[in-house]
């Protein structure tokens, strides 16, 4: 069974999207851990590694993504993890491009069907296990 962590870093309290995606992935047959809001990058990287998840999804709507996402990627790398990381939220196009350049596998904006996310998460995991 695919194990996913959905995390909310920073101070952002907008958790509707994170919860909806978490529920949808669970209904798609995955094991989902939802961290709750206000997690530091350190807490997220550490628990993703400790829980040995296959993939990490990060939700941010506050605009802090360009600071927080690179930090989480860096910490994961330091811990020797290369788990796929995807991001969801209000992410301007040029930022999404930049995030993908530094290793984020996909960035999902408002209106993305959860079925599409579930399907792609499976591919990310297959790809990283290959």
């Amino acid at each position: 069974m695919i194990k996913v962590m959905i995390a909310k870093p920073g101070l952002d309290g907008h958790d509707r999207g994170a919860k909806v995606v978490a529920k949808a992935l669970r209904d798609a047959g995955m094991e989902v851990i939802y961290t709750g809001i206000r997690q530091t990058p350190e807490q997220i990287a550490q628990s993703a590694v400790d829980e040995d998840v296959d993939v990490l999804g990060i939700s941010i709507l506050s605009g802090a993504h360009m600071k927080l996402v690179p930090k989480i990627l860096e910490l994961l790398k330091k811990m020797g993890s290369n788990m796929p990381v995807f991001v969801g939220g209000i992410i301007p196009k040029e930022d999404a491009k930049r995030l993908k350049e530094i290793g984020v596998v996909e960035v999902y904006g408002p209106g993305t069907p959860t079925s599409e996310i579930a399907e792609q998460v499976r591919k990310f995991v297959e790809h990283s296990n290959a």
């Binding site: 605009g63 802090a64 600071k67």
Partner: peptide
């Protein structure tokens, strides 16, 4: 440290 990336954003 908690404010990282959030200053002046929302």
């Amino acid at each position: 440290p908690h404010s990282l990336g959030e200053v002046g954003k929302v």
